[in-house]
Each structure stands twice: as C-alpha cells, then as structure tokens.
C-alpha cells in the first residue's frame, strides 16, 4: 500500500466503562457467610416473597417492565391484552417455525428462542408493533382525516403503521379486540385515537391489525416503543411454545412435506 494510504496506529480509546453493572430492577442481598448467594431478592424495592403473597403475576410483570405496580385499571387492561396475545395461532410463521423445531426432533429447549426470533418480524411481528407504536405516538394528537390523507391514500402502509389488511381483508379479531379493550377503564388516548382512525379507514376497507391494537394498548400502559415491541414478543411466547411442544411429541410424518410435484422452481 502506498504511503498516501498509511493507516493510523491502533491504540486503545481507554473509554470509561462502568466498574460495575448498574440496575434499577433487582436487588439481591447477600447471605451473611457467602457473598455469592442471595438471601433475599427485591424487585423495584418490593420483596419477591411479599409480591408472591399479595399480588398477581400480571401485577409483577407490569412492575418488572414499568418500575411501579399497576393500578387496578392498568392490571385489568394488561391481563386482557396478555390473554388476547397469548397465542399467535397455528398459522403464524413464528408458530410454524416452533412446530418445525418440534416435529423435527430438535431439542425442545430450542423452540422458544427460535420461534420468538421469527416473531420479531417487520410483518405481523414485534418489529411491526414497534413501527406501529412510533406511528401512533407521533400522530395520536392529530386529526385522523389528515393522517389518513398522508398515510393511507394509494399506499400500502401496513408495515409502517400497523393498520391495513391481512390476506386481502380486515382482520376481524383485531377489530373485536380493540372494541373490547376500549370498554375498559385502563384504555387511554392511543386506543381511542386508533379507534377513530380505524373508523376513518373502514370505507377504504382497512382497519386495525393485531399488531396495532397491541401497540395502542402498550402505549396506553406507558410502555416505550422499544420496551413495547419486545414485550409483544414475550406475550406471544406461550402459544409459540405450546404448539412447538405439541409437535415435539409426534412423529416427523405428522406435518405435511411438500411433494416434488408441488415444489416449483421458477427459473
């Protein structure tokens, strides 16, 4: 290499890395005779055993991600959302990935990481929730008519907004879910605005999708975009795992294998 392109000498930046990892979430108090063994664990200041005794799983999962226990209205909204999202269903790509792991006799302990990774997708997955949360957050104080004009005329905005169609039609379950959750005391501005947007989109044969309903509810529960999208990934995990495990107990012939006649190479 000529002198002109001589590179700099490699040297450390000596960046000020933290001496210890800090956390606001969890505090482990060491045993008196072994600093590596925890005698008690506290989540945002609450003793774990006291939480077990007094609060629900939904309350504690809210605490873990939001830093405070939920109000009764928030807990009810989150519990209904968690049930709604508990299973992406056997036709979702992430669930089918889980089933492939199971029926393929891969170690069932790999079902969850594999399936949740697929559930991160930009289409009907966690990334779509992230984009939908960003879209709703940026627009939920604005007139829906203007937003429709800007985002839904002559464009397919599904992946960016979380509103639109799946398989060529309106996702009925999403519409029903939004209407059901809207009745709860914990529902807030994002869900109400989303319902107004969905109404404005109905003449265009577009509406809520599951991802946008999740996005709106997570915003109403105070989740940031980053946390909300990852949380959506977590909420679908039980169904993904259940379907994968169901197939793990079956022979490899239990799922279709496309015949050569139906395998078409387009070249």
């Amino acid at each position: 290499m000529s002198e002109e392109f001589k590179h700099e000498q490699v040297r450390s930046r000596n960046e000020p890395f933290a001496q210890k990892t800090a956390s606001q979430i969890w505090h482990e108090t060491p045993a008196v005779d072994n600093p590596y063994i925890a005698a008690s664990s506290h989540c945002y200041g609450y003793d774990l055993h006291e939480l077990m005794h007094k609060r629900s799983y939904v309350d504690v999962i809210f605490l873990l991600f939001r830093g405070e226990l939920p109000s009764a209205a928030q807990a009810e909204l989150l519990q209904q959302l968690m049930i709604a999202l508990i299973n992406p269903g056997p036709r979702h790509a992430a669930t089918r990935a889980a089933m492939n792991v199971g029926v393929g006799k891969t170690d069932p302990l790999h079902i969850l990481p594999i399936a949740t990774a697929v559930y991160a997708g930009e289409y009907s997955g966690a990334k779509e929730v992230e984009m939908s949360m960003t879209f709703i957050e940026a627009n939920c104080e604005r007139d829906v008519a203007v937003v429709v004009q800007e985002n839904f005329i002559d464009t397919d905005a599904v992946e960016r907004t979380g509103f639109g169609v799946r398989h060529g039609g309106i996702e009925l379950r999403a519409v029903q879910l939004a209407q059901q959750l809207q009745q709860l005391d914990g529902a807030g501005n994002a869900l109400a605005w989303g319902n107004r947007l969905a109404a404005a989109l109905t003449p265009m044969k577009k509406n809520w999708l599951i991802t946008s309903v999740a996005a709106a509810v997570l915003l109403d529960l105070g989740f940031s975009t980053r946390v909300g999208a990852s949380f959506f990934q977590l909420l679908g995990a039980p169904g993904l795992l259940a379907h994968g495990l169901e197939m793990a107990g079956k022979p490899i012939l239990a799922m279709p294998f496309v015949s050569d006649e139906n395998y078409i190479v387009e070249r």
């Binding site: 990892t21 800090a22 956390s23 590596y36």
Partner: peptide
C-alpha cells in the same frame, strides 16, 4: 461452572427504589 466472571451480589450496583412494603390490592 460459575467461574466465568463470577459476580458477588453486590457486584450489581442497585440503583432502584429503596425497600418498600407491597400494597394490598384495593
């Protein structure tokens, strides 16, 4: 096992709220 970068409990710098009683569900 347990020998890769072992951490004592207090090697995590807890910066969250102080201990508090869990309120009963209203």
């Amino acid at each position: 096992p347990d020998t890769f970068l072992p951490l004592r409990c207090d090697d995590i710098d807890y910066q969250g709220p102080p201990r508090r009683a869990v309120p009963d569900v209203k």
